[in-house]
Amino acid sequence: MRTVLVVLFDAVQSLDVTGPTEVFAGAETCRAGSYRVRTASLDGAPVRTSSGLTLVPDGTLAEAPAPHTLLVPGGRGTRRPDPRLTGWLREHGPRADRLVSVCTGALLLARAGLLDGRRATTHWAYCDRLARDHPAVRVDPDPIYVRDGRVSTSAGVTSGIDLSLALVEDDLGREAALTVARHLVVFLRRPGNQAQFSAQLAAQTARREPLREVQQWITERPGEDLRVEALAARARLSPRHFARAFQSETGVTPGRYVDRVRLEHARRLLEDTPDGVAEISRACGYGTPEAMRRAFLRALGAAPAEYRRRFRPAPTH
């Protein structure tokens, strides 16, 4: 029996609480005796979430059982937290076998000194703040969750479900996690390294229709000729005018945007298909496996084959 203790506080994000709670409760339903989920606030009083819902905790943090997994959700209440909450986390966080944060819950862990020297992430809108206010934390703004030893941090709300499913898979096996995912009608499972934003969302959408059409063309055809000259011709602009307008309206150069799209597409194929590296490199416009290898090493610090070994889910039998 693993006790999962969820910390509650005023202006908590309700989905940060209920998403992981449903995962662990679902695992307990399909395999009795696996988890006991408990919630607690500082004084045991009900808390009002940022969306206006009221959550009634099981008790106070002082009286809560020592948890196997201590889960800290995010929300507006993390911006100016009660010092007593930070103090409790500082004292009790190191005692948990597993320390987990969802969204801006990472800010609370960082305030308590529990992320110092560790790699961590949070909601994309707060990664800069986390890095600025806590320079001892190695902030990675890209993935939907990061696992560093016994400490796991996740990005925006739904990524807490992805991380919780990964933890259930660690504890009980893939079939148990898959059963929970099916009941919740969610994927099992988005790998933690998956970007918080797709290439299209990370860049701004161009205002002018020809440039928006070019963005869509790039996304749908990463293996095509995507040099500036070819893209400019599609937008019916000169290469110089196109490059300047594209960067002005999207915030990135055409080349950088193409690089992001190709890398994202290649990662997806490595994770989801059995296609060989040579085949994927052609499909994504790299041309050769060596060109794709250089792009992966530059962006991810791992060659394609190593990336696949790390992040492609093991086959089930």
Rank of each mutant, 00 (worst) to 15 (best):
P222W: 07
S14L: 13
V37H: 08
R240A: 15
D16I: 08
C30Y: 12
E279W: 05
L178G: 14
V100E: 00
T3K: 10
R310A: 14
G33I: 11
Y257P: 06
R208K: 04
Y35W: 06
R312P: 02
A177V: 12
H241P: 08
A314C: 09
P315A: 14
A266I: 00
G287D: 07
L5W: 11
T78R: 07
C284V: 13
V37S: 04
V277F: 07
G301I: 00
P57D: 04
D142R: 15
P239G: 06
I280P: 00
V168R: 03
L115S: 10
R189D: 13
L42C: 06
E249R: 06
Y286V: 12
P143V: 00
V168L: 04
G287P: 05
H92F: 10
L115V: 09
L269R: 15
R95P: 01
G19F: 10
G26A: 00
V180Y: 06
R294L: 14
G87H: 07
R244Q: 14
P135M: 03
L184D: 03
A243F: 01
G173I: 13
G44D: 01
G93T: 00
D43V: 01
W124S: 12
E220K: 11
R312N: 03
A112G: 09
A131M: 03
R138Y: 04
A176Y: 11
T205E: 13
A40S: 11
D225L: 03
R190L: 10
A303C: 04
T39D: 02
G251M: 03
D148Y: 00
Y286S: 05
R118A: 08
R111M: 03
D148G: 01
R147E: 14
T122M: 00
R189I: 07
E224V: 02
G156L: 04
E271I: 15
G105Q: 09
V146D: 01
T78G: 08
A206D: 01
G77M: 01
L70S: 12
T104Q: 14
T29I: 10
T104V: 11
L300K: 06
Y257A: 05
L226N: 07
A106F: 02
P20N: 10
T205R: 15
W217Q: 10
L211H: 03
S238W: 00
P313A: 11
D275H: 12
M1Y: 09
T39K: 06
A181D: 07
L53Q: 13
H317T: 15
V261A: 00
A166R: 14
T253W: 04
E264T: 13
A195W: 09
P46G: 03
P313S: 09
S34M: 01
D171N: 02
A155H: 02
T86Q: 13
V17M: 03
H68Q: 13
L167I: 15
L15D: 02
A195V: 01
F9Q: 03
A110P: 08
H92M: 10
R80F: 13
V23Q: 02
V47W: 09
A233G: 06
G19T: 07
P289I: 09
V139L: 06
I280H: 00
